[in-house]
Design a binder for these strands. Structure first.
Lengths: 248, 248
DNA sequence: CGACGCTTTGACACAACTCAACAACCGTGG
DNA sequence: CCACGGTTGTTGAGTTGTGTCAAAGCGTCG
């Protein structure tokens, strides 16, 4: 049922949390057997919508955000390949944010009932998803800390270090550089800054030979300098496997 | 085993998500059968610690926060009676934040292995906890939006409206007022503001007859005015029960 | 009584925002 | 082929929200 060559990013990710049985891996494979494409710019999750579906990214960049009554936009996070989007909304019965495709994307989807059935039938998978949600939440918390208590420069440095680390995990970044589809306006909306100020701070970082961002490419010139500036700590918490009884 | 009179806030909360069997309610009751006290000021979860324990608040106010390398503090949220703290850390194997007691508290605790066993044995409870974590995450997201894209005044208004709503759910607030143990410094750390500025904005809100905060009491003078100012939306998303097969 | 924690106020500094203009770079269509 | 609008990046000038520093008021508690 499961074929090693087809091992998905999702399966790899969840496996790093708890060892899966063949059955469970099969379920994960089935889950992603009918991927669909989403065009750049399309909003595929709308805040407050009640059609509960979860998405598993296979390729492309997403952007989860909320719009405020005053028209402002706050980006929550940028889902990357291997990430899940909308898991929360399955249990909450309504999405608490919108999500759009920053680039063309390929995703697998699952409806809420199917997801609930899986949790019910395969508790270990349930725990694995719980773990995935927890990881997301931890990242949102770090993001919160960034916006609340870091200066613009620290925030931007932190943001790119985190992106680099996440992209490295799925083989989309080298030690020193990666491609990205973000413009300065969306970066501003992610970090609670204005587009103009993002530009100015990027110039500073460039002038200090810490980081450059040009033509959709980020170059990390001085990783340890950036880390010191940003007060950065690796994401690598909770990636050791746990023991959980097999229910087969 | 379960006695209606002893129905806990936790059981009531989780029941609002999915109907529980007697067994499941019993598990929840057992979980909380040995409450312990925590003294005001005590830090009972430390960031990065690996002793994974979850806490269920029965009374008192907590404060989850992170300390930055530069010494700043960012408050993530204030756990209230009926809330869980540290659920995430059970799966992540390390706490991503610290937590202290703002007032004396009474809590029930559970070690990670016990929690994993419950998830494994009672998938519906697992789903319920997943739901609880999702709710928390949604609140953190809203907090993030607040700090990222709302002005100081909007933030403070939003903060107190949210607190009021949460406290009402557990019978600790009336339509117009509630007690709280927070000083302006900790409010500042929650909202990414300085203590001094919090004070100034509170004065404005008082002068505009929107809200007063004195001697540990918050009075909401003009709820709809505050809501309009803050762009506030009720938390009441995802509180309808879902259908989930019974595995008994 | 003094010490301490918390609030309040004022004066000033500065980080970040707004507005505005312009440059560079597309893809499109005449 | 060039003219065109649209998007993004860049820079300057001036404004403002919020932070910092400092001092004083006020309870409470030992």
């Amino acid at each position: 049922m499961i074929h090693a060559k087809f091992e998905s990013l999702l399966a790899r990710k969840l496996s790093s949390f708890v060892e899966m049985s063949k059955d469970e891996l099969g379920v994960l494979a089935d889950l992603q057997s009918k991927p669909v494409s989403i065009k750049r710019g399309q909003v595929f999750i709308k805040e407050r919508q009640t059609a509960h579906k979860a998405f598993f990214l296979q390729s492309g960049w997403g952007c989860s955000f909320k719009i405020l009554p005053n028209g402002g936009r706050q980006v929550i996070r940028f889902p990357l390949p291997g990430d899940c989007v909308g898991l929360r909304s399955i249990l909450l019965r309504a999405s608490d944010h919108s999500c759009t495709a920053v680039t063309d994307m390929v995703v697998a989807t699952i409806e809420a009932p199917g997801m609930l059935e899986i949790i019910n039938k395969y508790p270990r998978l349930g725990a694995a998803f719980l773990w995935a949600i927890s990881q997301d939440a931890a990242m949102v918390v770090e993001h919160l800390v960034s916006i609340g208590r870091r200066s613009a420069k620290e925030r931007i440095a932190h943001f790119f270090l985190e992106l680099a680390e996440r992209l490295k995990l799925v083989g989309l970044a080298t030690e020193t550089q990666f491609d990205h589809p973000l413009n300065q306006s969306i970066i501003g909306d992610a970090l609670g800054l204005s587009e103009v100020h993002v530009n100015r701070v990027l110039r500073e970082l460039r002038e200090q030979n810490l980081l450059t961002l040009r033509e959709g490419k980020v170059n990390i010139l001085d990783s340890s300098g950036l880390q010191k500036l940003a007060g950065y700590r690796s994401l690598q918490i909770g990636r050791d496997k746990i023991d959980m009884p097999n229910t087969d």
